[in-house]
């Protein structure tokens, strides 16, 4: 049986990464401005207005689209930067913006009705009715679904929702409802919603303890690695904690999502696009992962099942997983 060829939406944190993604076969590259208007506001990362213009000029002639993530939440009294980002996105001709805040969506729908609006995963809309709300009120045409849904749940949403759906297929996993998590700000005072960063690097310290390394986030110890033990991102939800007397990865093991074998199922479920996480990753990673995913998408479109090969070395904890899609945790 032949299945629809899914759109491959790939991350870029720098112009070099964008070119790497386009060259490796990305249908679409998503990126953010170099400020607090997006949820990957990392030091040295992201695009200036000029760089975005150049990015579009590189991508469009090569048949790739560019989406701009404006997916953090404006603080009261300071909505200006987000509105400016929306205006600039419209002016520069991005193919869509990815938004999570109701106020920003409302502004865009009224001011730039022709600018395509996608609902960010940061809005954590996990039910067809939530998508219906965003569609009816703000005319969104697509939603990025949370990383915690099973394939049957994805299918239910894709079938019932009045908009296209996009799901994560590869990269870091977020076990919490995204955009509704204050764990980082509880420990550091900064969160994806308020500052565009989760567990900001400025608050992370690796403290050597002989052979071991202690990982500190703000005032808290969030992990301790033995020498040679694989590690993951220093985010709170991937830390090791004690509950009921024993230490474990209580929330999430340090693993990455690799749902390549599930692409045929996702396509059959009516999903429209596949998203790769990782705007913070280097261009070497982007080139390799986009290339592998391109191959997987083509395989699935030809009716074959893609395998998980070759990418484990790039993953957190050195391994990939089918994540929530495979209902194991239920």
């Amino acid at each position: 049986m032949s299945l629809p060829r899914l759109e491959l939406v790939c991350p870029a944190g720098t112009p070099a990464a964008l070119e790497a993604a386009v060259d490796a076969g990305a249908d679409t590259v998503y990126l953010g401005f170099r400020d607090c208007t997006n949820a990957r506001n990392f030091p040295g990362l992201n695009f200036s207005r000029k760089e975005l213009e150049a990015a579009i000029a590189y991508a469009h002639p090569r048949g790739s689209k560019v989406y701009l993530a404006i997916n953090s939440f404006p603080q009261a009294g300071n909505e200006g930067p987000w509105r400016q980002a929306v205006d600039d996105a419209a002016g520069l001709g991005v193919d869509a913006i990815i938004v999570s805040d109701i106020g920003v969506l409302d502004y865009t729908a009224r001011r730039h009705p022709d600018l395509r609006r996608h609902l960010s995963v940061q809005a954590s809309a996990a039910h067809p009715l939530a998508l219906a709300y965003y569609h009816r009120n703000f005319g969104i045409t697509r939603a990025v679904l949370p990383r915690v849904l099973t394939v049957p749940q994805v299918k239910e949403i894709a079938t019932e929702a009045p908009v296209e759906t996009e799901v994560f297929v590869y990269g870091g996993m977020c076990p919490m409802a995204e955009g509704r998590c204050a764990l980082s700000s509880y420990a550091t005072g900064r969160s994806p919603n308020t500052a565009g960063v989760c567990s900001p690097a400025s608050h992370v310290r690796y403290v050597p303890e002989g052979e071991r390394v202690q990982v500190r986030l703000g005032d808290f110890t969030i992990n301790r690695f033995e020498s040679g033990e694989p590690s993951g991102y220093p985010t709170l939800c991937k830390g090791r904690f004690k509950a009921r007397g024993h230490a474990s990865y209580l929330f999430e093991d340090p693993v990455s999502l690799d749902a390549r074998p599930l692409i045929p199922e996702l396509a059959a479920a009516g999903v429209k696009a596949l998203k790769i996480e990782g705007r913070q990753r280097g261009r070497a990673y982007i080139a390799q992962v986009v290339g592998a995913l391109r191959e997987a998408v083509e395989k699935a479109a030809a009716g074959r099942t893609p395998e998980t090969t070759s990418l484990a070395a790039l993953s957190e904890g050195g391994r990939g997983t089918g994540g929530a899609y495979r209902k194991d945790w239920r």
Partner: peptide
């Protein structure tokens, strides 16, 4: 190579101000 991948596999050991390291890595990568 990808810095995060090297770090996850513990080929890189980083101490001190992570933001500085990350900023440098991101700037170099571009």
């Amino acid at each position: 190579v990808d810095g995060d991948a090297l770090f996850f596999s513990r080929h890189l050991q980083i101490t001190g101000d992570m933001e500085l390291v990350l900023a440098l890595r991101n700037a170099l990568d571009d």
